[in-house]
Design a protein around this nucleic acid. Sequence first.
DNA 1: GCTGAACGTTGCTCTTCCACAAACTTCCGG
DNA 2: CCGGAAGTTTGTGGAAGAGCAACGTTCAGC
Lengths: 234, 234
Amino acid sequence: MPRLDESLLTGLPPFARLGRPEIREILDQAASRRYDEGAAIFREGHDAETFFLLLDGYVRVARTTADGDQVVVLHIAPGQLFGIAPALRRDTYPATASAAAECIALAWPVQLWHDFAARYDGFAAETYRTVGQRLGEIQGTLTQLATQAVEQRVADALLRMANQSGRKTDAGIEIAFPVTRQNISEMTGTTLHTVSRLLSAWQKAGIVRSTRKHIVITAPHRLVELGSAGGPES
Amino acid sequence: MPRLDESLLTGLPPFARLGRPEIREILDQAASRRYDEGAAIFREGHDAETFFLLLDGYVRVARTTADGDQVVVLHIAPGQLFGIAPALRRDTYPATASAAAECIALAWPVQLWHDFAARYDGFAAETYRTVGQRLGEIQGTLTQLATQAVEQRVADALLRMANQSGRKTDAGIEIAFPVTRQNISEMTGTTLHTVSRLLSAWQKAGIVRSTRKHIVITAPHRLVELGSAGGPES
DNA sequence: GCTGAACGTTGCTCTTCCACAAACTTCCGG
DNA sequence: CCGGAAGTTTGTGGAAGAGCAACGTTCAGC
């Protein structure tokens, strides 16, 4: 296995306060793994044996209900830790993670988590900051699901993805990983049919352009109007 | 102020591994506070200056949307820590907490949190376990909201409250704190009207008995049927 | 014992969105 | 180049549940 380069970790929040030697130590204990698009990284309920740092790609975290429905809880962007069950003293993963696009991740055995937390300054703090952010994000999604209409939720879901992973192109903001209508429906608690209709309508209105698994937002401001409140008030 | 008795904390998970002298230390730094039913304990977005342990009563944690809707995220039962923003490196509360029933809580200034975590064995670990549990709970609510019909969500909300705070009476399981239809609708993302109709129907069917702000579940198993799957499959 | 406020019930209407269905397009492997 | 799989589009009911409205009930304060 090629030796991993230290620049992979420098600058990332959990390791921000560390010097090269510490980063070297951490890297030397990591395994690098690759996942094809759609591949499962870990599954809900399984023993949490590993925690991860996403180097490249996007990870989708989802839960499955008793009757087989999927609900997408959040997305992980490059540079973030995930599968951090040990930080919350869980010995089992609370959700399923799969590669939304082809992914490269570093993996460490859970036992090392407490080591890292004890030994490396800022590591635990940053991890918990991340947990806090995700908790907030999930609460936000919950709130939206409870109060907003479908159109607003879908608009917001698009904007959230664009914010977290948007690539600016000449045509507008492009969501950087493959997304199906089905995926979006799983994020917003609706059906792929409804999502398809909304996207078609928005495309006709010039707000988005979409092809198979691929969405570009051409008029973000109009989507914001749709999402945050409902139609433009009188 | 009367000196607080050590028995208040012995046996509670965050302090389980501590001896009397440590518990004494912790208590001596605590302020005891009382809140009337409905009183706000802290508000979303305000500076997190204090964290709490609920001794008696029930706390409702909610978020408010831009257009004034409330969404109840979870309930806190006696013996649990809450307002633990510092554990997640937040300097502001992510939600609003108010007393669902009259409450007695211990309060400490946030600065002490890191002290406690560093000095007292098991304190941080137990706190994070709690965070993990709540995260799981919220994910569960999210999943339900995204996939289940209103009737099932309301049934489940009742059962959750009964599980967490149920008092067994001769008539059935009684929810130990005051709940309005409005409250339930805020937990389930529906309207008080719909909740009222459901409760009426269930009362006619002999599943619950309810009076003003007060609910007794007389046939929990039938509610479980309603919640977990939908009507009894052929 | 009144009065007003908070809480609860119920009927009706109307919209939203799901369910079902069928066809079409894009993509990939052989 | 062909065939199938995966993803998408569009149409047509129909049902669930929100919105609106009006009225009834319980309770606390004076």
